[in-house]
């Protein structure tokens, strides 16, 4: 559907996008994830033809965005970071303008405007001036604009930034809904958001694509659970004594000792963490002490994100598909 090949962009001497390649298939929700200034918006601007690339190609459904912009742009609906709205228009006037610019006429135009107005839930405000609308509604009008012309791909740049929690949930639901009929690409620097909505995640850091995989795979791949947090009524010395019988503990650190409870971290080099839990449990049972709480620390996407973005100089993007 979209293929990006060796895309680079310099702003003067600053390298904003560094040789990014990926392939986007039809009918999924893709999340662009990265810290602020990672190059998300730049990449999206290039993909939609708003910005030139220093080198590389972007093809939308086979049409090059630079050489065949007219055909390529008809496949895309784009909502930039700042919704590009004419403040003096009403949503209806605005959508009519965008629809006409996308080459829609008469009945088809009316039908599609009707449809996107319903879909984005702006029917109630359709005849009010955009300057009087709240931020959430403005964002919706921006999304409605992107939906006109029934493009195959919807690209949304940070659609939930600056909205209140309720509006964020509404916009997320809308994105999920859109994902059923369109290919949706949206960017965010909020992890939970991307995790909740996306089928595939593209992580970008310092202009490089550092990961491209499903959220589940990314978690699995990067952090196998190998740490256990334990709260017990045994004193630290007793604890050490009990655990001495458990094999394959690589490290034991006592974190807190209130006199009554002891909290400890146990690391292992063993891959099967449940085997370790079982051994620990049996050891405690044998020594007549009680495990009050035991948590397995699982790798979260957050850890993956921090790990990847902090060591983004790593040569091989994890799980990147060959473009």
């Amino acid at each position: 559907m979209i293929s990006v090949e060796h895309l680079s962009k310099y702003y003067g001497n600053f390298l904003a996008v560094d040789n990014i390649s990926f392939e986007i298939e039809e009918g999924h929700v893709y999340g662009f994830l990265g810290p602020n200034g990672a190059g998300k918006s730049t990449t999206m601007n290039i993909m939609t033809g708003c910005l030139s690339a220093t080198s590389g190609h972007v093809r939308i459904d086979g049409f090059d965005i630079f050489e065949d912009p007219d055909k390529a742009k008809r496949q895309i609906g784009y909502l930039p970071e700042h919704p590009p709205l004419y403040m003096n228009d009403t949503p209806m006037e605005y959508l009519r303008f965008v629809g006409e610019a996308k080459g829609l006429h008469r009945e088809e135009l009316d039908r599609q405007i009707e449809e996107v107005v319903q879909k984005t839930g702006i029917y109630g405000v359709r005849n009010r001036r955009i300057s009087n609308l709240s931020k959430g509604y403005r964002q919706r009008v921006g999304i409605a604009q992107a939906l006109l012309g029934n493009p195959k791909v919807i690209i949304l740049d940070e659609p939930t930034v600056g909205l209140d929690p309720l509006q964020i949930i509404e916009i997320r639901d809308l994105i999920k809904e859109l994902g059923q009929s369109h290919t949706v690409i949206f960017s965010s620097h909020i992890l939970s958001e991307v995790q909740a909505i996306c089928d595939q995640i593209l992580m970008i850091s310092k202009g490089k694509l550092v990961a491209f995989d499903t959220p589940a795979n990314l978690e699995k791949k990067l952090l196998a659970p190998n740490e256990t947090r334990l709260t017990t009524d045994a004193a630290p010395d007793e604890l050490r004594h009990i655990l001495a019988k458990v094999p394959s503990i690589s490290q034991l650190t006592v974190e807190e000792n209130s006199g009554k409870w002891t909290v400890a971290h146990i690391s292992t080099d063993r891959s099967d963490i449940y085997e370790l839990s079982r051994a620990i449990y049996l050891a405690f049972a044998a020594s007549d002490k009680v495990i009050l709480e035991m948590t397995l620390k699982k790798g979260t996407l957050e850890d993956v994100f921090i790990e990847l973005t902090e060591s983004s100089t790593a040569q091989k993007p994890a799980g990147q598909k060959e473009a």
């Binding site: 912009p69 590009p84 610019a101 996308k102 604009q145």
Partner: peptide
């Protein structure tokens, strides 16, 4: 100023 130029760039209009 309103950033609507981005819209014009992304529309299939030269």
């Amino acid at each position: 100023r309103q950033k609507t130029d981005q819209l014009l760039y992304s529309l299939p209009v030269s």
